[in-house]
Design a protein around this nucleic acid. Sequence first.
DNA 1: GTATTTAGTTTAAGGTCCTAATTATGGGGA
DNA 2: TCCCCATAATTAGGACCTTAAACTAAATAC
Lengths: 391, 391
Amino acid sequence: MSRPRRETVRDVRRNNRSVILSTLFFAREASRFELARLTGLSPATVGNVVADLMGEGVVVEAGLKDSDGGRPQILLAINVAHGHLAGVDVGESRVRVELFDLGLRGLAKTEVPLRPGGEDPEEVARHIVHALDGLLELTGLEPGGLMGVGVGVPGTVSRQPASLVHAPTIGWKAVPLGAMLAGPRTPPFVIDNGAKMLGLAESWFGAGRGAEDLIMALVGTGIGASIISDGVTYRGSMGGAGEWGHTKVVRNGLACRCGGRGCLEAYAGPQAILRAAGRSVEGADERSAFAALLFDPAARPVLEEAVRHLGRGIGNLINLFNPERVLLGGWAGLLLGMEFLPQLREAAGEIALPYHFAHASIERGRLGAEAVSLGAAALVLDDFLSGGTRS
Amino acid sequence: MSRPRRETVRDVRRNNRSVILSTLFFAREASRFELARLTGLSPATVGNVVADLMGEGVVVEAGLKDSDGGRPQILLAINVAHGHLAGVDVGESRVRVELFDLGLRGLAKTEVPLRPGGEDPEEVARHIVHALDGLLELTGLEPGGLMGVGVGVPGTVSRQPASLVHAPTIGWKAVPLGAMLAGPRTPPFVIDNGAKMLGLAESWFGAGRGAEDLIMALVGTGIGASIISDGVTYRGSMGGAGEWGHTKVVRNGLACRCGGRGCLEAYAGPQAILRAAGRSVEGADERSAFAALLFDPAARPVLEEAVRHLGRGIGNLINLFNPERVLLGGWAGLLLGMEFLPQLREAAGEIALPYHFAHASIERGRLGAEAVSLGAAALVLDDFLSGGTRS
DNA sequence: GTATTTAGTTTAAGGTCCTAATTATGGGGA
DNA sequence: TCCCCATAATTAGGACCTTAAACTAAATAC
């Protein structure tokens, strides 16, 4: 029933600390006075909590605010050098690792291509660890200052027993990636689905800002969705919510790589589109081939047909989830969105209930296709903002 | 972002009071000692809070628990006579009103049939008020003791500005039902979608007990769904989440009464099934005609086809929401479930991803089709358990 | 250089929970 | 019948938290 849990006086402080820290993070800079106004807490409490945070080195003063009469406000900011975070994007063809400061500004990044068939979990884990070491060395940052590493994977992550990854497209089945990465003195790893991380990134910094109920429709090599409700990512009982790509849109339809028939991915995924257009599908060249297709007049009917499927799928999502915003992302989704956003909206509008459609906007994501690593780091940061103290 | 809100010391007490009250409600009876164990609170705190609650008359002592040596535990229980609740189910053909005590045991109920075309909001509101008065008189209960009335409607309820009801099937468009019902000294009315209330009822008392992630698939005259995630009902930005009946399952398919084409309801709704079986569809007789169909061998292929559509729809829901349980309810759904549950499961299994399907069970609801009013009362009770004090 | 204004800090008061000690209340045995 | 024992419930004391209000600090304006 998810009844609220017992609470004690110290939880109050934990909660208010988290409120202040989050508010300060999203405001980037604020004075104690502004924090009091923003959070509704009394100035005294803000002062106390800020004193704690400054004592820990999490918050620093960042100059004064001009005043015309009266004591100037002392601006505060998260101490972005207090630690750093890493985000990892395990894709179907490469592993991206990126280092961020506590303000989530990128410090350095690297990519390791995966040769086809080289998605062996052990190998991927080695790549991640190696890339992290490399980035730390490159930037000269203290390894002990790495507060956590978020890892986005192209599959389902169940969190209950441990973090087990199920990613059929790269052949992973109940892979204990978290345990494989953890070493004697490694930072904590947080594993989750890549689409969910992209959704978090867009929701914090991108086209999802300000929306509490949001769907991130990700069309990359695979198709997935991240559902954010009331500001929190919907996971379902085994962490597998949002498997949109394999909802069935045609009965006895085309075969899909998942083994099923009639999946959305088999109609609107880039591989399916390339195949329908009569282009050969080579792994590495997939993206450029797809981009080329976009401007080929001969391919237009094929693309429009795919967009129609995608739009219908979005219409059904709108009926089921009643979001206020739907964001199209992923490398293929962003390309399609550049050219076909009106057609997409039209197709969705034909499907969705008028009332629902009228209150939902459909837009492109704003952070590009490479924001999974940002979202992964954001997930770690979220833990920190909501109470985690660095040990 | 739904960041946590500022909290003060008194919120701790409010929260713990709610924890204790909820725990006691679901346990039906418990001693202070057991409550301490169950909630994790110290005996002292439980004692204090219980003293408050007894002072207010919300909780009463309910006998002793046998002990073999040592002071016996004093059993406590919610004082079911402390107030009463009402639940209203506005259906497409009748209005049901039911009175409950604080233990959600039914005290009395009544039904008002709606003549076709008689779904005028004003008239429905009059029916509700009149039926409530009648029930109060019948039972001799104090009208002032009515702590709240939940009203389930067959449509979408947006809560933001006020409670506006959108229910196309009965011709309601932005109906301010809450405001229409409220009088100078009426109890608070809580309006919500009927499927969501049924979902709450099954989740508290029926086949959904113990499940945190749950989908209630309601097949009545219309088709809808209630999605419960982490124990809370998913509403979406305008309260319209779960409009499953009008997701599109066939492209350019059959016309639906919503005006669209290819809706699930046009293939698996009882009216659609009756039509496909060549039976005439008369409003009042719909249910018995459908029930008769169920045992007509000639109609079997039609029914199986409908079940297949339903199962495929459930399979897609499982992919998107990753529930641990799917409950089939509504009068038509329960009938179909009696005969065709295996076929339904099979169809869903063909659609859903194996990992998702393996962790989701599909069952019939256990409370019957009439539990909407129970759920409506439960919604009101939930407010009370989580902090509401009766003024 | 003083008055004014606004930001931030200190202090006292009111709540809350927890631990530990104390009191209450039954059963069992002599 | 009376006393002891075991267990439940209550009370007392201490720690922690927020708030309101008084107070101090640090600027500008005249």
